[in-house]
Amino acid sequence: MLAIQTRGLAKTYPGRPPVVALRPLDLQVEPGELFGLLGPNGAGKTTLVKLLLGIVHPSEGTATLFGTSIRQPEARRTVGFLPENHRFPGYLTARQTLSLFARMAGHDDSRTDRLLDRVRLADAADRKVKTFSKGMMQRLGIAQALMSDPRLVFLDEPTDGVDPVGRREIRDLLLELAAEGVTLFLNSHLLSEIERVCTRVAILKEGELVRDGTVASLTETGRAWRLRSTPIAAPVADALGATLLPAPGGPTGDLAGYTLHADDRRALNDALDHLRTHGVEVESVEPLRQSLEDLFVEVVSAPGASSD
């Protein structure tokens, strides 16, 4: 059973003129997947999350969470959510906050202490929330999202306002959750965070899904490889059936780095055979990837794009 499935899910906000926030979207997220949602401001990311959580009503289409329609409150029984800019009542302590939200989720508060410990708030358990820093509030928000022992967690900018150490702790926590089989739906502007945590990424642009795939497949440039080998003499390189360019940085020790462009895998292997025939020793060959940030800029700057 899919963790998330949408069929033609769309949202248009009424007004003059109406605002198309999300165009008909078909999306499937498998249980245990670490799914990252990217897109520029106004792309429809938050609208999609709100639609899936019943905060916003769809204009058309359907969606399910673990097979239950999002129109039913029961669909959110095993779902956790950390909204962006969440507000907890300042007059409550951290412990009272978790206890109340656990009750609202239909659970007892037996996990409170364990979760406070897990997000490093055990020492502040009985402090009023209004005295918390932004980072502490964010960690409390994550603990709140985990109170219902969820199978699916939506996180909207989970590391927003958190210092680098705290950011790493949150990242480690998310990876722990992933190891426990929890499905993560991460919405973040920090592309490096998404790149480090998520296994699959979708990019929304103007309410439309323009890229969807694994991080590895999306960042692969295709037809280019990074080659580390013993230095290649110019005549040998010139005789290659592929383009060979020195990689930035120059040689290290007895090895040098190159970028090898070949039309396909066969051309790549022919080139490697040619190099070995001429006494070149190959240390490693790996597909050349662009960073997620490069991909993101490329996609959102392009006039149009299609889903992979």
Partner: peptide, 15 residues
């Protein structure tokens, strides 16, 4: 209905 508060409440299994 404040943003950030209502989101939390509506994300719970409550009608």
């Amino acid at each position: 209905q404040t943003r950030g508060e209502i989101d939390l409440l509506l994300s719970k299994p409550l009608s």
